[in-house]
Simulated scan of single mutants.
Amino acid sequence: MARIRNKKKKPFVKPIIKMQSSVDHITGDKIPNSFVFSRGKLPGPLRQLQVDLRKLMLPFTALKLKEKRRNNLKDFLNVSGPMGVTHFLILSKTDTAPYLRVARTPQGPTLTFKINEYSLAADIAQSQLRPRCPKDLFKNSPLIVLSGFGTGEQHLKLTTIMFQNIFPAIDVNTVNLSSCKRIVLLNYNKETKLIDFRHFSIRLQPVDVSRRIRKFVQNHQVPDLRNLQDVSDFVTKAGYGSESEADDEAATVSLATDLGRVNRASNKSAVKLQEIGPRMTLQLIKVEEGLCSGGVIFNEYGNHVSSKNKKINDEKQENEEDKDGEQEHEEDEEEEQDDVEED
C-alpha cells in the first residue's frame, strides 16, 4: 500500500531567541544587566521580595530566571558572561536576619547589606486608597537618586558607585521624558547608618486645570451630561481639585517638550510621586574586593573590634612605659646610693 505524504506539512525550525541589546544606541555606553537570585532556602515573604526586586530591575534583568538548589555561584558567573550580565543581587537568610549582597561581575567588589525591615509591593499597594500601576510602567529602567552619601568615607563612595552603575545612565540632553516613569531613592542616615530604599512611580499633572477636564482629556471618554443644564456646569462644578492636591511651587516644573495630550511645554506641570515598592531599610555590613570573596575593605563589626584592640594595645603600651619608668627610677636610686657609699 502506497504511503501518502502531506506536502503542506512544514519542517520544524527552532526559533531564534533575540537578546536585548546591551549597548545604548544613543550614548554608545554599555547597558548594565542584572541577575536577581537567592542562596539557600528563603521563606515565602523573601521569595516575593525577590520577585519584586526583579520587577524593579526591569527591563534589563532576567524576570523568569530559573534557579536550582545544586546551582552554585560559579554556574551563574559562567552564564553571565555570554548574556552580558554585569551585576548580581543575591538574597539570603540566616537565623538572625535576611541579607542582600550586591556584586559586580566578574571580579567584584561585593557589598553586603543587612535587611532590617522590608515591605512588599503588594503590601504597599494594599495600604493605598488608589494604587497606581500602569501596564507600561516597567517598560523602561528607573532613575536613581542618592542622598546623604557624600561624607567622604571610602565604603560610602563604593556604595554610591555601585548603585549608580547598576542602572543605565541617562543623557539629560537626549533623554525622552516619556520614558522617565519610575525612580529609585536611596537616603543614607549618618546617625543611624541606615539606608532607606524606596521605589516610586512618576506622574505629571498639569497645573491650573480642573480635575474633570484633565480626566476628560486623558481617558478619551464622552462625559455624562444628563444631569447638567449647560456644558459650563461640567467645567466649573468640580473646581480645581481637593485641598490635598494643592499645587506646590517646589514640585512644579516646566517641560522641555510636550508630554502627552495634557502636559504641555507652555504650561507648568506638577510632579507626583507614588510609592509602588518594594521598600527596604538596609545597613551596610561588609565590603569585599572580589565576588563574594577576597580582602575585606570595610567591616561594620570589624571596626568596633579594631577600636577595642587598639584600646587594649594602648593600655599595654602605657603599662610597659610605666614599668620602664619605674625601672629607670630604681636604677637612678641605686647609682645615688653607690655614690654615697664611695664618699
Rank of each mutant, 00 (worst) to 15 (best):
R261G: 12
G277L: 13
K268G: 03
I276D: 01
A256N: 09
L255P: 03
R279D: 01
T252G: 05
S266N: 08
G277E: 11
S269K: 01
K268L: 04
S254Y: 10
N267D: 11
N263R: 07
A270P: 00
R279H: 13
T281I: 12
V271F: 10
A256Q: 08
L273M: 13
S269W: 03
R264C: 03
L273K: 08
S269Y: 01
A256E: 08
K268V: 06
G260I: 11
V253R: 12
R261N: 15
S266Y: 11
L259F: 13
T252C: 06
L255A: 00
V271N: 06
K268M: 06
K272C: 12
I276S: 02
T281E: 15
G277N: 10
S254C: 06
V271L: 14
A270T: 12
A256Y: 06
V253F: 15
G277R: 03
S269F: 02
V262D: 13
L255R: 02
R279M: 11
V262Y: 06
E275C: 06
D258H: 12
D258V: 05
S254W: 10
V271C: 14
Q283K: 10
L282P: 11
N267M: 13
R261S: 13
L282Q: 05
S266P: 01
R279F: 14
R279L: 13
T257R: 02
D258N: 15
I276K: 04
N267I: 07
K272W: 05
S254V: 10
G260R: 11
S254N: 09
A251L: 15
R264D: 00
M280D: 03
R261P: 03
M280I: 03
L282G: 11
Q283G: 05
T257K: 02
D258Y: 13
L259Y: 14
Q274P: 03
L255Q: 02
V271T: 04
L273F: 15
Q274G: 03
V271W: 12
A270D: 11
N263K: 13
R264V: 00
M280Q: 04
L273Y: 15
T252K: 02
R264W: 05
Q274C: 00
S269A: 00
A256H: 07
N267S: 11
L255F: 02
A265S: 09
N263W: 08
Q283T: 12
L255E: 01
P278R: 03
L259K: 03
A270K: 15
A270H: 14
A251P: 04
R261L: 14
V253P: 02
L259H: 10
G277M: 09
R264H: 09
T257H: 00
S269N: 03
E275N: 05
V271Y: 13
A251K: 15
S254K: 15
Q283Y: 08
L259I: 02
S266M: 09
G260K: 14
R261C: 10
E275G: 07
A270V: 12
V262K: 04
E275K: 08
K268R: 05
A256L: 09
R261A: 14
V271D: 06
G260D: 09
S266R: 13
E275F: 06
G277P: 13
L282A: 06
S266G: 08
M280L: 10
L259W: 13
E275S: 09
G277W: 09
I276A: 02
T281V: 10
Q274R: 12
V262P: 07
L273H: 10
A256I: 10
A256M: 09
